[in-house]
Design a protein around this nucleic acid. Structure first.
Lengths: 134, 134
DNA sequence: GTTCGTGCAAACGGTTTGCAACAAT
DNA sequence: ATTGTTGCAAACCGTTTGCACGAAC
């Protein structure tokens, strides 16, 4: 909580009650919620929070580099509290999105891509997540 | 043209005038157009073509495995006439999307992904495309 | 008292859908 | 006659925006 306040300040974000509520959720969430899902969730504890504020707040967080916006789903954008480079796995049946650590995958280009100045990349995998082996 | 008719039939798609017009464009397009862009374009030669038919037709093509639907852009889906597995590069300034041949990139997982049953994957790269050399 | 954030409702843009007219077989 | 396709308009859903109110410095 006090840690979250500091994190907002460190990113040049004035910490308000609403922003704190959103940050507390998104920064500690394993899920990759849509803006509306964030609203649903945070509204439980902050019932006065408006949908517009959630959208504005999440966009602010993205612009300030606190979280990432990911285009992984049709029709909507999801937000990712994991802020370092990483890959993604999407369960084709449940639609769930999982973060894959950067060093779990090695990507090598074979020199034919001279035309392109690559600033960033990620691997997007699709399939089925097996039953948790505890 | 006659070749396109065959291609539609081979995918179990009844070739109508509208479907042919859409197919002729999307199958030979280097661009990665949105449904609306397909409409704009195909409407030039087929002015009676409705927006709904374009959406329906593109979805039909995807379901029949003739083209791919790609989630690479915020707010909209793009269609890709290249039907084999390949990667993508997105120019961050122009928004243009380029197909990257499958064998131009090598992806190796280092064995930590046992939880995941991977059916498909692609690398999504972002950056700037350099001026064409030649 | 000026600046910034919030909430509401309306607007917006991409997409889907219900339905009536219309082939095609 | 039945089945499938098209076109139109309305509906839908995620998101943004205009504006008035309110809080903070």
């Amino acid at each position: 909580m006090i840690k979250t306040i500091k994190e907002l300040r460190d990113h040049g974000i004035l910490p308000t009650a609403q922003r704190l509520a959103v940050a507390e959720y998104i920064l500690h969430s394993e899920a990759h919620p849509t803006a509306d899902q964030v609203w649903e969730r945070v509204r439980v504890t902050s019932p006065t929070l408006s949908r517009a504020t959630v959208y504005n707040t999440l966009n602010l967080f993205v612009n300030k580099g606190l979280i990432q916006r990911q285009v992984l789903r049709e029709g909507t954008v999801v937000f990712d509290g994991m802020n370092d480079a990483h890959h993604h796995f999407i369960d084709e049946e449940t639609g769930q999105i999982f973060d894959i650590p950067w060093d779990a995958i090695e990507v090598k280009t074979n020199g034919n891509l001279g035309e392109y100045d690559i600033h960033a990349y990620q691997v997007v995998m699709r399939g089925r997540r097996k039953k948790k082996t505890s």
